[in-house]
Amino acid sequence: MTVISSSIPRRAGTATSLTRRMSGLGKLAVIGAVVLVSACGLPRSGPNKKEIYAGSVDRGGNTHVIYVNDHVARTANFSPAYGFSSDFRNASTVGADEIRAGDVLGLSIWENVDDGLLASMGTSSTALTELQVDSQGYIFVPYAGRVRAAGNTPDQLRQLITQRLETQTPDPQVMVTRMAGDGATVSVMGKVNAQGVYPIERPTRTLSAMLSKSGGVAIEPEIAVVTVKRGNSSGKVWLKDLYTNPRNDIALRPGDVVLVEEDQRSFTALGALGGQTKVPLGNEQINAVEALAMVGGLSTALADPTGVFILRDEPQGVARAVLGSNAIQGTQRMAYVLDLTKPNGLFLARDFMIRDGDTVYVTEAPFVQWQKTIGSITGTAAQVGTIDSALGG
C-alpha cells in the first residue's frame, strides 16, 4: 500500500510538466502562424504600390506605369468628342409641305368642256379622294397615269397632273390637297417633356427647333446628350454644344429619330477612399481632384497619398504621345500615378482629366498594414492567453 501511494504524486508531477510544455509549444506555434498569416493573408482593399509596379512593362508585365507630370497631363487629356458627321451637317432642309409616301391626297379637276374626260354628264368638275401615295412615291390619276407625288409640293404635283391632262382635255384646272398624313415626320424620344411624332414644319426644320417643339429636355442641360438616328447612321452631341455651335443644329430629315438621354459615362472608384462605387461623370469633363471629391476624398485612416492610380486602356495615338514612341502598336494598358504629397501634386491632379471607363484606385498606406499585423498578433496573443488559462498554465 505504501509503495502505491508514494508513486501517485510522481505521476501527477510528470503530467503537470507535460501540460506546461505543451502550453508553451502551443503559444509558439500560434504566434508563428499569426506572423505567417499577417505577412500574406491580412484583409485589405486591393494591391499595394509594390504589387502594381511589379506588373509594369519595365518588369516584364503588360501595364505601363507612368508618373504624371505636366507633359503627361497635357498629352493624356484626350476625350472622344461628340458631334455630327458631314453627312448630317450638309443635309439640306426639308420643305415643310413636301409630299411623302403614305400621305393621302385629294384631287379636284375642272374641265372646260361639257363632256369631259373625267366629269360626269352635266358637271364640269371631278373629285378624286383617298389617293394614297404608294411606297414608291406614286399615285394613279385617270388619263394621267402614274404620277410621282413624293418629293413634290402640292403645287408642283398640281402642275405635273395639269401637264399630263392638258393634252387630252382643254385647259384643265387641278387642285391638290393633303387629306391625311403629316408629310415629313420626326420621332422625339427620351428625356423630353413631350415625347411624340412631330411633323417637319417651317418652324421646326432644325434639331433645336424640334426639341423646343417637344417641350424641351427634362433633365439638367449640362448632362443631356442628344442622339439623332438616320437610317443606319447616327450622331450625338452635347445639348450645350447644340446651342453654342450652329453647325451642330442640323437640318432634320423625314424618319429621323431624336433621342435625349442622360450622359451614360462613368468611372469606378476603388481602394482607400471615402466610398467605393461606380460614379457617373456628371459633366462633360471632370479632373482627378473632382473625381476624388465625388466619392468622399481619400480615407484619412487608410490612404497613401503617394499612391493614387488612374487605370485605363489608352488608344494607340495617345499611348504613343505619352510614351514618346511610335513603335507602340494597339491599345495599351496604362496606370497613371499621382503623388499628392509633391509640391505640385494637387495641381497635376487638377489638370489630369478623368475619362469614361477609368478606374480611380488609391493604395493603403504601409503603416496601415503594419497596424493590421500588430493588431492580429496582439489579438491572437490574447486568445492564446485564454487558451493557456483553460489548460491550467
Rank of each mutant, 00 (worst) to 15 (best):
A144T: 01
H71M: 12
A184M: 04
R265L: 09
K49S: 14
A301L: 15
D256P: 03
L323H: 02
A301W: 09
A288L: 10
A33C: 10
K213W: 03
E261V: 13
Q132V: 08
E314W: 10
G274F: 04
I99R: 02
T386K: 06
G55T: 06
I286N: 00
M210I: 00
L323I: 04
K50Q: 15
A272M: 05
T75N: 09
F347L: 13
S92W: 08
L165A: 04
A33L: 12
V257W: 08
T169I: 09
L107K: 01
P199D: 09
E284K: 15
L107S: 04
A29P: 05
V226Q: 03
V94P: 00
D134P: 00
Q264V: 15
N232P: 06
D256M: 01
E201W: 11
S120N: 14
G392A: 01
A365Y: 06
L131A: 01
N248T: 05
L273W: 11
I4R: 14
A349D: 02
W110M: 08
L323F: 01
R247H: 15
T306H: 05
A54I: 04
V337P: 04
S86Q: 13
V94T: 05
I310C: 13
Q159L: 09
I223S: 11
V65C: 08
D171W: 08
T2C: 11
Y67H: 13
V72L: 01
P315A: 14
D388N: 09
G385V: 10
P246V: 07
A150T: 02
E222L: 12
L311Y: 15
D171F: 10
G282L: 10
L302K: 09
I109K: 01
G122M: 08
T277F: 13
S92P: 08
M334G: 11
R320A: 10
G330P: 11
F140Q: 14
L273H: 06
K342I: 04
G83N: 06
A76R: 11
K213T: 03
A272N: 07
E222I: 12
V279C: 08
H64A: 13
D58Q: 12
G183K: 00
S124R: 15
V322H: 00
T75F: 04
S79L: 14
W110F: 10
R164E: 07
A291V: 05
L165I: 03
P366Q: 01
L281M: 11
S124P: 11
L105N: 02
N152A: 11
G26D: 11
V257A: 09
A218G: 06
Q132T: 08
R59W: 03
G24W: 12
T359G: 13
G24L: 12
G13V: 11
C40G: 13
A335R: 10
